[in-house]
Design a protein around this nucleic acid. Structure first.
Lengths: 206, 206, 206, 206
DNA sequence: AATGAATGAGCGTTCATTCAT
DNA sequence: CATGAATGAACGCTCATTCAT
């Protein structure tokens, strides 16, 4: 509806809204076009198919996360500061992009290869070597120096990611289980970050 | 296709297969019926609608988890054994029911209320008080006795659940990130459980 | 639901209720069976098909009208008493059988041959010669004797039937057109009969 | 099938054919589309549902009658000319639109509110006051002036409408009852109009 | 670049009917 | 006679996609 705006962006935004709530299968092309204020045929002109649009949505949002992580990784840090800063980075990012995590979860459940491949190619675009591998190496190094109490970098990474992302998906169930509404406020997320950092430091630092 | 089998169970199983891969929106009634070896109209005879079938699938699988957790909770344990046994319980269960976690993730992303409500009603069926709350109380008690280093039961529960479940969804991404295939073997899951237990104990026990 | 009742009658009654409101196409076999308190397969046992049941409903109700008319016709009457009594007979009958007129109207509109043929065969069952023809003859006779001001028996019969039956179908439209509710009371139907009789006598008697 | 024709009109016409023979419940969307020579989805593109199409059919044909009646009513006439001209108007109209009367009858029998409401709204569109009421008023006036032998305008209107419309529905039964085929010729309808006019004048004029 | 109309395959659902017991 | 389960052929409707302009 808004004028003077690149229709591609308009469409991508509308599609993100749609797909993050209904998934690829549940998302409706008509609705996306209508919300974007463009003719339905334009979606096909720009993105050639519903699936193409979906992938582009995924890519465009996902790619925003990479540079943040890259910047973080490149800085020389101690394990302690690493474990203190990574949760804040991830949780902060997903808090600002709640739709992305739903989108990724949906895609992981239905079509794991799509998002994995995309993820992989994004990583390769940005770093000469895999980002995860470079984190991995860093962790492996720390581990061999006796700076960490666990020595499998993959398990450590899984633990970190689990603690930082799962909540965004599980929030509604947590609310039901604990019979209370969790407010979208800084206070809560500070507590969340604190809890994760505390767990990681207590569990990983010697 | 198989004879002498309760068609209701046949349908539920086929539906689980379908929905856990494609979601409610992406799942096809025809395919479910065909795979179950029954006439499509039977789905409606027994479950009245696609959504009804979906909910029944969710319920029938979800309800298998509850008694396990209940049994675990009811036993008087020390924090230490609690943190040692819960990850094995959850990870073991989801390893045997990999489709359920996808199903729940899909549903949480697209329709959080359905699965939350179902979850809540299942909890209420089984326990006089909410299961989560009773775990919560136990944790709160331990916390007040100085047996745990964190004092927000909800954060602790989120941490535990995150560590135990997220991997099953994120596995394909982890494989890509680390450029290796993770085998479905006992060895790997033992490592996973170990890592989680170690993290929890190191992070939570004094 | 009622016990100790001939299920055939139960079914016919339930079917009348259904078909007179929804028509043959709109009527549902399941609903008929449920309302009749019998298993659906029984309908087919007794009436062999939905259409067979429909025809039997039509026949069983329609046939109640014939003897009344026959009795009326057989009595030797003057045109005056004929015109006074026929409207009361018809309007009285349809008032007690409001579902029949809807049923016949529905069938006449969608499948004129069915009800016409049925009508014809019912007439033949009861009278050696067609009932209508015998009325016709009577009217023709009166007409030739100068006792009536119109001489086409068919037009006269159409007029009589129109005046006596149309209202039962058109009632809802009349209510809307005149912006008032027409009560199902004796008073109104007396007025109606009076109006018809007055019109017929004024228009037909010399 | 015909080219260069507004598909909306094509659909409406095909739908009229279908619904007037089978009713709303019995009419088939596929058949309507096929006969109209358009894709089935177009019905929904233009009319949003089967019922929406049905109502539009009803409305589009019904609305043709109103102006004729309005024009007739607005002219200042004597009761005599009124009773002479109204039957010709109605019978002439329905003779040219035989499908409409079946359509209305079907709808009155199964769903009286739909057609009544439509009728009412059409009347209101065209006349500041209800058409029927304005006829009513005219009749009431005449009646009070002693120009008519009956004084209930509603009964008079019911009589007129009955005499003019019922035949079109009952024709097949009349044919069977009188064991003859009624030809669709001017001669017959002239006789019909004559008979109605004669009856009305004889019965209503002083 | 942009639109409204069109399309065909397929969707969830229903229904009259039949079968096994 | 009576039942619950089963069936297959539609049915009304939707959707991603394309076409003509």
């Amino acid at each position: 509806m808004k004028k003077n705006v690149d229709p591609k962006i308009q469409i991508l935004d509308s599609a993100m809204e749609e797909f993050s709530q209904l998934g690829l299968a549940g998302g409706r092309v008509d609705r996306i076009a209508k919300r974007a204020g463009v003719n339905k045929a334009m979606l096909y002109y720009y993105f050639h198919s519903k699936e193409g649009l979906f992938k582009e949505v995924l890519r465009s949002h996902f790619s925003q996360l990479i540079p943040l992580v890259v910047a973080e990784i490149r800085e020389p840090v101690t394990p302690q500061t690493f474990l203190e800063r990574i949760p804040r980075l991830y949780i902060g990012f997903f808090r600002k992009n709640p739709r992305l995590i739903r989108l990724v979860a949906l895609n992981l459940a239905t079509d794991p290869k799509v998002v994995s491949t995309l993820f992989s190619s994004l990583l390769n675009e940005v770093t000469p070597e895999h980002l995860a591998l470079s984190i991995s190496n860093k962790i492996a190094l720390w581990s061999s120096q006796g700076l960490l109490r666990q020595n499998d970098p993959m398990q450590i990474m899984i633990n970190i990611l689990s603690l930082c992302t799962f909540f965004f998906l599980a929030k509604p169930m947590v609310e039901v289980a604990f019979d209370r509404t969790i407010p979208e406020c800084d206070e809560f997320y500070e507590k969340r970050i604190e809890s994760v950092v505390s767990l990681l430091k207590g569990g990983l630092l010697p």
